[in-house]
Design a protein around this nucleic acid. Structure first.
Length: 233
DNA sequence: GCGACAG
DNA sequence: ATCTTGTCGC
């Protein structure tokens, strides 16, 4: 019953996405910004040794202080293929999330949710398999187009698919700095996803949840390799 | 058909 | 994602 078992090929991976996509919930507003817990997840790789490390960092949404941290290390189970990132990243992310004692609350992913060729990026995938509220905050617009938002923090503009539909939003989190690209994952509205992202990024371009998870998974990877993980003998 | 393309 | 020092600025 694990929807993240490694697909045999890309065609099977796409078929899994098409099936799971029918379970995405897009008509819930999600948790109110600034309350409860927010969890950032991220992964780091050692391609040479085929090792991947994931981190989940739980923050208090009001103060952005760390409540709990968890990591997991494993073998890379799927290559990087644009549009199929979930199969590469999520198995280890799930392991990290499952070892948390706290309820993750809203999960913030590095990448996309609805802003995806088949409207099922890793944030939506993670939401469907866990039932958690999720959003995606990416550093690049992928294949989508957008008008430059205003120069001030908080300015935003629609992220558009070729069909003209709004699949996410370009959101300026810092004055005069390149925007981030926010999209809905599961059980959160786009307005709320952007409001959460802005609150999570008071001082830097990226959300504190993402920054904390990024730092932690890199350290976990270094520690794991230092301890011999991935060594053949 | 070929390239581009989240991390 | 990853390869990666020193340096400019608050």
């Amino acid at each position: 019953m694990n929807s993240l078992r490694s697909p045999a090929d890309e065609a099977e991976a796409r078929a899994i996405q098409d099936e799971l996509r029918t379970r995405v919930v897009l008509d819930e507003p999600g948790p109110p910004p600034g309350t409860g817990l927010v969890t950032g997840v991220d992964v780091a790789y050692d391609d040479e040794r085929d090792v991947v490390a994931a981190a989940a960092v739980v923050l208090d949404a009001a103060t952005l202080t760390v409540v709990e941290e968890a990591t997991a290390v494993g073998r890379v189970a799927f290559p990087y293929v644009p549009g199929l990132l979930a199969f590469r990243e999520l198995p280890t992310v799930l392991a990290a999330l499952e070892s948390l004692s706290a309820d993750p609350g809203l999960v913030v992913c590095d990448g996309y949710g609805q802003a995806h060729p088949r409207r099922f990026g890793l944030a939506s995938h993670l939401g469907v398999v866990t039932g958690l509220a999720t959003i995606g905050v990416a550093k690049n617009p992928f294949t989508f187009t957008y008008e430059q938002p205003g120069p001030r923090r908080g300015a935003e503009s629609p992220l558009l698919a070729g069909t003209g539909e709004e699949v996410g939003r370009a959101l300026r989190t810092q004055d005069g700095v390149k925007p981030v690209f926010v999209s809905v994952g599961h059980r959160v509205s786009l307005d709320n996803a952007c409001a959460h992202t802005l609150r999570l990024a008071p001082d830097f371009r990226l959300p504190e949840s993402t920054r904390a998870a990024d730092t932690l998974c890199r350290r976990a990877l270094r520690d794991a390799i230092g301890a011999g993980f991935g060594t053949t003998t």
